[in-house]
């Protein structure tokens, strides 16, 4: 890049945005696979049985629910007492 910086190229900028989004998806899949593996997987058998598969599906859905619930609740507490951000930075 001859001194003009990557942001000068709109095509590259678009590419980086898309790839970053894909990477956030991938990263969360890695993370949830690890978390749900601990919750759902007993001894690895010759096949992924249907009960385990249902557990994985539920685990992903509830993990996302939990993440959204926590985000919403934090937002609410922050709104009701404005001192929240101060107590965080202490």
């Amino acid at each position: 890049m001859e001194g003009q910086g990557a942001t000068a190229d709109p095509q590259l900028q678009h590419f980086i945005e898309i790839e970053s989004q894909k990477q956030r998806f991938q990263q969360l899949v890695h993370q949830m696979t690890e978390v749900c593996w601990e919750k759902c997987m007993d001894k690895p058998g010759p096949k992924l049985d249907s009960r385990t598969e249902v557990c994985f599906v539920n685990c992903v859905e509830r993990f996302i629910d939990t993440s959204q619930f926590i985000l919403n609740r934090l937002e609410q507490t922050q709104r009701s007492k404005g001192s929240f951000s101060e107590s965080m930075s202490d």
Binding site: H30, T33, W37, L48
Partner: peptide, 8 residues
């Protein structure tokens, strides 16, 4: 693990 990854 691959099955799990794909399901997730």
């Amino acid at each position: 693990y691959m099955d799990a990854w794909n399901t997730v």
